[in-house]
Amino acid sequence: MSRLLCCAAMLLALLSTGMAAHAAPTDAPKVPDTLKQRIASCTACHGESGEGSDNAFFPRLAGKPQGYLVRQLQDFRNGLRHYAIMEYTVRPLDDDYLREIAGYFAAQDVPYRTHPVPSMTAAQKARGEQLVTQGDKARGVPACTACHGSNLTGVQPDIPGLIGLPYDYLSAQLGSWRTDTRRAAAPDCMATIVSHLSDADISAAAAYLASHPIPDDPRPQAAGSVTMPLRCGSVGS
């Protein structure tokens, strides 16, 4: 009888260890089933709400038009826009997922960071202001505001705002059109515009934009609210 009990106890013990081995480990973390959790790879650099960082490498994504963000992600994936870690990160993702991720950041509404304002001479400031608000007709350069909105907050659904971005990021992006590390779908209107700018122009425009105050309503303008002076392959379908 005691032998039987002993056997039964042993059997029970064996069964329970067997069960323990198959049960989920008790210290397995609990992971929320949210998009935010899934895209930790994005938010590690761009911030949980896409608020961006203080440096020139991880720009703000929050509140940018969804169409613009999707296109940038696709351009990284398809080799039009170059930045190694971004190209690597988006390569295994498809359009549906990129659209969802872009939607997440487009929907974020968080305060803008302030960035250090670069020092400008009066002449630089004047040239920057001219390029941003008036353009340079003689050189075929339209004003930034002509497409990016009168307050530079961008236009739904495809045109990004130019506010709240650090000088280094802005000047690097303008420069990258010249070095062919950033391209857009043809006709690449930004490439055309940048080809008409001197290094000093790029610097002045970037500095002026970086020092531009954040408007009270920083949201992109409504779709169709600008008449673009150039045709851009990256705008519209």
């Binding site: 998009l35 930790a40 790879s41 994005c42 938010t43 590690a44 295994p92 993702l93 549906d96």
Partner: peptide, 10 residues
């Protein structure tokens, strides 16, 4: 269809 990811640490 909606994979999780690991953040970069570089």
């Amino acid at each position: 269809r909606r994979p999780y990811s690991m953040p970069p640490f570089a």
